[in-house]
Design a protein around this nucleic acid. Structure first.
Lengths: 249, 249
DNA sequence: TAGTGTGAATTCGTTCACAGCG
DNA sequence: CGCTGTGAACGAATTCACACTA
């Protein structure tokens, strides 16, 4: 904390005129995280449509395919500019391009995977991560039997070499797929190697400096949230059985 | 939609007096989703503490370990009742028990995994899902070469048998790890088999009836969110270089 | 006319700040 | 006295509803 808190001139009208690259800076900061996640989903749906030679979509169609309501979709798209045509809809190609630009997908992001167990293997074998643009360019483990072995076409290096290898291959995203006890140590190495974005599959809360972005994928948490819903349903059912629920007209 | 929208008497004061099981029903519905996800994290941290024979924690300690601030932690815990001691903190064992109860972890939830590729294998081999309480009791695929083969101790069945097998083994959570084109079909089968909770690893937006709960784990989306942050950082750096940033006092 | 783009209203979640209790 | 538990203030995200325009 300190130098943060942008001067961001409120997101006012008059957006996408002539300019191309500039003016995006202020904009980018203003997009809510939740909207960014959805933009990625819209992008996938739109890519599918493009493949099927669909050229135009309305907010209604696109939102249905993406599983959100149309107001939310339009609001989300408005964060990135005005690329629709009133009375008509959006050009698929244009939206794909604009979302890719905002998400920074016009540039490649080298990825490394640390921890080549079951999951690490699965990740390495995706070979060029989901949706491409994310080439896996380094793999790490501690197991001596794995060092130097190719997995998904990449040789596994030792965890000690994270700083050197990550620097050489300009890794910008680190994926942690180690057992829990190893995760924080690996994370520290990645951070000192200059990696600023981390995707963590280990069920551990990572401690990182402010400038590092961590996203986590936590199986146990997901399962437990589902469990909560199962339980809630059971409670409601029991409640209804007791005569507590009013049957609607 | 219709019979929803609880009568929930506002969550007012005077909570955990004598009653034990009842009164929780109204309560459960009132816990924000975001808080449920965090409760799962607190549970893990607390379990770790219990293993190390820690008997008491303050909101300050626990929140630091869980990576949230203490106000949020206390608010989250207040949703499940008043189990702390003012001036002291919380008893680890008590909190573990209460969170497990709220998350429905006192009951086992049978899980099936559909799609036994790289990821499916990894999931099946966790054998009894993260944090236990989630025994994997069925596996499915379409590949004839896999049917009848044991993976992680369970025989793989054909996708056509989802309804029968899921009913027999009382599966309450379905995990989809198939290629994208197969996901919706599998989802439909799970739903018609009575599975009400689904964890979806396929990069597809599933369409399900209202009463089914879907959580998704979407690698591509996670990577793209990180990409967005990389891009934002780059923009900010460029902006600062241009002399646009005011160096704070 | 059909459908975008967006202020305004609303809902939801977080943080503050302090009363109350052990 | 210290720490919990929580109303109240705040802020972020969603939804509404309609002016606007191709």
């Amino acid at each position: 904390m300190g130098a943060r808190r942008g001067e961001a001139d409120e997101v006012v009208s008059a957006p996408g005129s002539a300019v191309d690259e500039p003016a995006v800076r202020e904009r980018a900061r203003a997009i809510p995280e939740a909207a960014v996640a959805r933009l990625a989903v819209y992008l996938r749906v739109l890519s599918g449509m493009a493949e099927q030679s669909v050229t135009t979509v309305s907010s209604e169609e696109l939102s249905a395919a993406a599983g959100v309501n149309s107001a939310k979709l339009r609001k989300d798209l408005s964060y990135i500019g005005s690329y629709g045509t009133r009375g008509v809809g959006y050009e698929v190609e244009v939206l794909v391009g604009q979302i890719e630009r905002i998400l920074g997908l016009t540039r490649k992001h080298s990825v490394c995977v640390v921890g080549i167990g079951n999951l690490g293997h699965a990740l390495a074998n995706y070979g060029g991560f989901p949706g491409r643009g994310f080439p896996v360019s380094a793999l790490f483990d501690v197991d001596e039997d794995l060092i130097g072995v190719p997995v998904g076409g990449i040789l596994v290096d030792h965890i000690e070499d994270i700083p050197r290898v990550c620097a050489e291959r300009e890794v910008s995203i680190g994926v942690i797929a180690t057992p829990p006890p190893a995760a924080q140590g690996v994370c520290d190495r990645l951070v000192s190697a200059g990696v600023q974005c981390i995707l963590n599959f280990a069920p551990v809360v990572l401690q990182v400096p402010d400038h590092v972005e961590v996203r986590k994928v936590d199986l146990a948490v997901e399962m437990q949230i589902l469990s909560f819903h199962v339980a809630r349903r059971a409670d409601e059912a029991a409640y209804a059985d007791e005569g507590g629920m009013v049957v609607p007209g």
